[in-house]
């Protein structure tokens, strides 16, 4: 059975160009069962292109994409029936009522659970008698969350689901993520700019930049390895020599050195350069992301 495959998603050496622009470059990524994968990166970094390949909306030209052991572009129905999907701007028929819409969507999924769908709408305070066009953006997103979950998908794909939503709606999205992964063997891929939220719910972090998969690591490792060390040093500081250091800012007589790896090793390296250590601390995902984005250096970890 396909459902026995350990990895729900198996992407190998996937590249994609749009005209001259590389949207994805040689990306290899596996998503195992029972995990939340957080995908971050600036706009145009390749997140949505990746998701479109998983959904089979784009066919792999270079490299391969396998979802539940199948090629989503070849067997879209069989793959999509096991995926729940919510995008930033869902395109729903505005003239339908919520009930009409969920009934319509139910026809696409063998595993659709009517009672669960009704429960979800009720829990999120959506009036099923209202027309979709009459609903606020937040309410429409809730309808989207309902149809993304009601067939109890094995993979929930959320592409910037929280953009422009109020905090309550955002929390409901996080609840959906946690509810999905709490059910054995189900996984979530969450692409988001809201790094606090990604940090909270993800088991694993995937960081894209200009089509490259820059980092793919357990969240715990990401949070325990990104660090900032404040040092004092007269004159130039050859921080590039410190293993794992990827960025440094010089201001007000202090250097802020950002690194990835063992913090003690970085401290040792900086002392070796004659720097006086003033402060050291671990970075949040948000801080790590900003420090990374400002860095020109490729990702590498202290050995």
């Amino acid at each position: 059975m396909n459902s026995d495959t350990t990895n729900i998603v198996d992407i190998r050496n996937l590249s994609r160009h749009f005209g001259n622009k590389a949207a994805l470059r040689d990306v290899t990524l596996q998503i195992p069962r029972g995990k939340v994968f957080g995908v971050v990166g600036e706009n145009g970094a390749g997140k949505t292109t990746l998701i479109k390949h998983i959904l089979g909306l784009l066919k792999a030209k270079q490299g391969s994409v396998s979802v539940f052991g199948m090629d989503p572009a070849q067997q879209p129905r069989r793959v999509l029936s096991r995926i729940g999907y919510l995008s930033e701007q869902p395109d729903y028929p505005e003239w339908m009522t919520v009930t009409q819409f969920t009934t319509y969507m139910a026809a696409f999924y063998e595993t659709w659970d009517r009672r669960y769908a009704a429960e979800l709408l009720d829990m999120m305070n959506v009036d099923p008698a209202k027309k979709i066009g009459e609903l606020s953006k937040g309410q429409q997103a809730r309808v989207g969350l309902c149809v993304a979950q009601a067939h109890r998908p094995e993979l929930l794909l959320l592409d910037e689901p929280s953009s422009g939503l109020d905090p309550v709606a955002r929390n409901e999205i996080l609840s959906a993520v946690i509810r999905t992964v709490s059910n054995e063997g189900r996984s979530v891929l969450l692409s988001s700019h809201l790094l606090d939220e990604v940090e909270r719910v993800s088991d694993h972090l995937v960081f894209f930049g200009a089509g490259n998969l820059l980092l793919s690591e357990p969240m715990e490792a990401v949070l325990s390895k990104h660090h900032q060390i404040s040092v004092r040093h007269a004159g130039q500081l050859a921080w590039q020599k410190v293993p794992g250091a990827f960025n440094a800012i010089h201001a007000n007589g202090e250097w802020q050195v950002f690194g990835y790896g063992e913090m003690d090793a970085s401290i040792h390296g900086l002392r070796g350069l004659g720097a006086e250590i003033l402060e050291q601390r671990l970075l949040s995902l948000n801080e790590a992301f900003i420090a990374r984005s400002q860095s020109r250096l490729p990702f590498s970890e202290a050995a």
């Binding site: 946690i178 509810r179 709490s182």
Partner: peptide, 14 residues
């Protein structure tokens, strides 16, 4: 674990 994770909106592994 699941209930507390959902309440706090954190990963169940946390």
């Amino acid at each position: 674990i699941r209930a507390l994770a959902e309440k706090l909106l954190v990963n169940p592994n946390t």
